[in-house]
Each structure stands twice: as C-alpha cells, then as structure tokens.
Simulated assay, not measured.
Amino acid sequence: MKAILFDLNGTMIDDMRYHTEAWYRILVDEHGADLSMEEVKKEMYGKNQEVLERVFGENHFTAEEMEALSIGKEKQYQEAFRPHLKLIEGLDRFLEKAHKQGIKMAVASAAIPFNIDFVLDGLDIRKYISAVVSADDVKRSKPDPETFVMAAEKLGVQPEDCIVFEDNPKGVESALNGGMKVVVIKTAHEEHEFEGLSNILRFIDDYNDPYLEDLLRN
C-alpha cells in the first residue's frame, strides 16, 4: 500500500443521516417527490445534479435551478450537522500514523468542494491530505472509477497500490471498477448490501479496528 483514498461523507465523518434528511426536505417536502426516507437514502449517490435527474427526470430543472438546489441542500446539511462535526472514532490517530509512515492520502468524493472544505478545514485535517477529487473534477461519478483513478493519478501512484476507504456499495463498486481494494466502514450500510463485491478486504465499525494496525504495518 502506497496510498489511501478516502471517501468523505459516511467514511471520515458519520453524517449520512443528515444528508438523507436534507435531501428528503428538498425532494419530498419542497418538490413533492413520492419517496420514503429509505428510498431517498438509496438515491443518494453521485453528484447532486444526478440525484435530482434520477428522481425527477432530465430537463425537469434548469442547470441554474439544480445548482441552486444543490447549494441549498448542502447549506441545510451543514447547519444541521455542524454541532456534531467530528471524525469517526480512531480516524485522528490513523491519519497521524499513516502520515508519519509516509503513506500518501487523498479525499476522493462525490461531494462538492463546499462540503469537502467544511470537513477538511473544520476539523483541521487538510495537513494530512495531499490531493482532493470532488464532484466538480470528474465527468462520471461513482460507480464509474474516474474519481478514485484521478485521485491515484494526483498522488502519483498506481491504482493497484491504493487502498480505498468507503461506506457505500456504489463507492465500493467504483473502486472495483478501478482495480482497487476496499476497507468498508459500516456507518450507513449493512454487510449484506455489499454482496457480490469481490474487492472488500474488511468491514470495520470505526478506525480503532485492530486490522488497521496490520494494514499500516504491511
């Protein structure tokens, strides 16, 4: 392992409930989508514009309207989550150990820069992160491998030399499509939801899992 690629939401911070609630307000309460909270959760992958198009169809909103809805949703999310903003248990120590060992690290997320900055600067962890790939940087979002492959390129390493940390089946599929192994953190999904994905090294509850000590030693 020469590099670690982190998804952000649900992987570095346990915030997916707040995203689901913000999306529910936008999609259902404000725009009348006929979706349950669980159905909203299943639609929450990829770029914000892609979520809107999956739910309402293409051309339902103009590009300007989707941009405004996207920013509005993230402002609602940040306002609700800010009092709870913290790294998942053990991640602070894991980042420090990996950094001291010279392992390169990147954030590779479908989040917009507005949200990535909220986390990296709000938790003062940008010092550990050598590269960032956001929704704005890619043409094809997860499960396409572009996000993770671009992050590896930015770090100057081969995809097969990276370990990805993810919480979402679509993200694990993205890593699989890019030839990368994954450690899955179970913040928002159960193990059975990842059935059929052959690139998973381990499921963990948080970053205190002893497996991660072995991962850094290897």
Score class of each variant (00 low, 15 high):
Leu8Val: 08
Arg82Asp: 08
Tyr18His: 14
Val138Asn: 03
Lys127Val: 06
Glu64Asp: 10
Gly102Arg: 06
Glu67Ile: 07
Ala68Gly: 04
Ser134Glu: 08
Val184Gln: 09
Pro169Asp: 02
Phe114Gln: 12
Gly179Tyr: 08
Arg93Phe: 11
Ser109Pro: 06
Lys42Asn: 10
Cys162Thr: 13
Val138Met: 03
Phe203Gln: 05
Ile103Ser: 13
Val172Gln: 01
Gln78Met: 15
Val133His: 06
Gly122Tyr: 01
Gly90Tyr: 12
Gln101Ala: 14
Lys142Val: 04
Glu153Lys: 14
Met150Arg: 14
Leu201Lys: 12
Ala135Trp: 07
Lys2Val: 05
Ile88Pro: 09
Val172Thr: 10
Lys186Thr: 09
Gln49Gly: 08
Ala33Ile: 11
Glu30Ile: 03
Ile112Cys: 00
Ala3Tyr: 01
Glu89Met: 05
His99Ile: 00
Leu201Cys: 04
His19Leu: 04
Leu69Thr: 08
Asp34Glu: 15
Glu89Ile: 05
Glu213Ser: 12
Pro83Leu: 09
Arg126Asp: 10
Asn168Cys: 12
Ala175Arg: 07
Lys170Asn: 15
Gly196Thr: 00
Asp161Ala: 12
Phe194Met: 00
Gln101Ser: 14
Leu35Pro: 06
Glu39Asn: 02
Val119His: 05
Tyr211Ile: 04
Leu215Cys: 11
Asn199Met: 04
Asn115Glu: 12
Gly57Ile: 01
His189Ile: 04
Glu146His: 03
Glu173Asn: 09
Glu195Ala: 14
Ile103Tyr: 13
Ala80Asp: 15
Phe114Trp: 12
Lys41Ser: 03
Glu153Met: 09
Leu27Asp: 06
Ile112Pro: 00
Lys142Gly: 05
Glu89Cys: 06
Glu160Leu: 00
Glu38Thr: 11
Leu85Pro: 05
Phe148Gln: 03
Glu213Met: 00
Phe94His: 11
